[in-house]
């Protein structure tokens, strides 16, 4: 491959890596807050993609303009999942770790079935996007605009998540993370913070879903394609670390792209997984995880 080709591969890896980072951010947020790994995270992203598809089909509105609507919808879904299921799963006395894994796992299957019930098994595509099919050429490197927009939104979302960390609410989040029981003494309602955390986490992956729908197909198994990568991103970056998710997402995007370019495309995920395992040998809690 020529140098120009490699530059193109690097650009593709970076653009995809930022999407991975955004998908992983919500997962990491929820984990950091309450030690829960949401195995239905990919399905929440799929739900957002179907929401975009349905709203676009009904209203004809440009998918990009639907971003706030879907983010709010997912925020509500996240809170509902917390109140309906997770709060209960956290209150069990026995076997808590497994209960939360399998509650979210069961939820994932349920959401997949529900989407198939509503939209059938066929693949859908959102085509009315004003950026769709446009691409920017910079010195021989092609930068597709839908992915560029997704990357920009990803960076804005990360800035937003970091900014939230500096607000009153952010300090309450931080305090709850540090010591769940002590925060009750200073008048913070732990349940409310957890619920908001779930809302934020779901909204973040909802934003990722909206941007992805601009250049990716929608189908009942689309969550599964991204879920494993999302878990690896979070574990590689360190559970609970926003910066970790960002760095790990980019790293994974690049490793994947270069494994496909220089080795075997069908083994590109093996390359990602190998790097992940290698890092975990030296840093068992990820790149930015607290040891």
């Amino acid at each position: 491959m020529s140098a120009a080709d490699l530059l193109q591969v690097a650009a593709g890896g970076l653009l995809m890596g930022l999407v991975y980072a955004l998908v992983a951010a919500g997962l990491s947020l929820i984990f950091g807050l309450m030690d829960v790994v949401n195995f239905a995270h990919g399905e929440l992203m799929m739900l957002a993609m179907y929401a975009v598809f349905a709203l676009w089909q009904v209203s004809g509105t440009d998918p990009l303009l639907l971003l706030p609507v879907v983010a709010v919808l997912l925020f509500g879904t996240g809170i509902a999942i917390y109140q309906g299921l997770i709060a209960r799963a956290l209150s069990v006395q026995f076997n808590r770790g497994m209960v939360q894994i399998f509650v979210t796992f069961g939820l994932a299957i349920f959401i997949r079935g529900a989407c198939q019930f509503v939209w059938g098994g066929d693949f859908k595509s959102v085509t009315g996007h004003w950026l769709a099919g446009r691409t920017l050429e910079l010195g021989g490197v092609f930068l597709p605009l839908p992915q560029m927009a997704a990357s920009a939104v990803c960076l804005v979302a990360f800035a937003g998540l970091l900014a939230i960390g500096r607000t009153e609410f952010g300090r309450a989040l931080e305090a709850t993370r540090e010591d769940r029981d002590a925060v009750a003494l200073i008048g913070i309602d732990r349940n409310r913070i957890f619920a908001l955390g779930w809302g934020l986490g779901a909204a973040a992956v909802g934003v990722a879903g909206v941007m992805l729908a601009g250049f990716y197909y929608v189908g009942p198994n689309v969550g599964a394609s991204f879920a494993v990568i999302a878990y690896v991103t979070v574990a590689l970056g360190g559970f609970g670390s926003m910066l970790g998710a960002l760095v790990a997402g980019i790293l994974i995007g690049e490793v994947e792209a270069f494994t496909a370019a220089l080795w075997e495309p069908s083994l590109k995920q093996v390359g990602v997984f190998a790097v992940y395992l290698a890092v975990l040998m030296f840093r068992p809690r990820g790149l930015f995880g607290r040891l």
Binding site: M16, Y216, S225, A257, A260
Partner: peptide, 20 residues
Amino acid sequence: DIRYRAASPSLSTEAQKLKS
């Protein structure tokens, strides 16, 4: 001769190989 992973999140590198 490109064998790719089915249902991948991205096929941009594979497309680059086809282009080359």
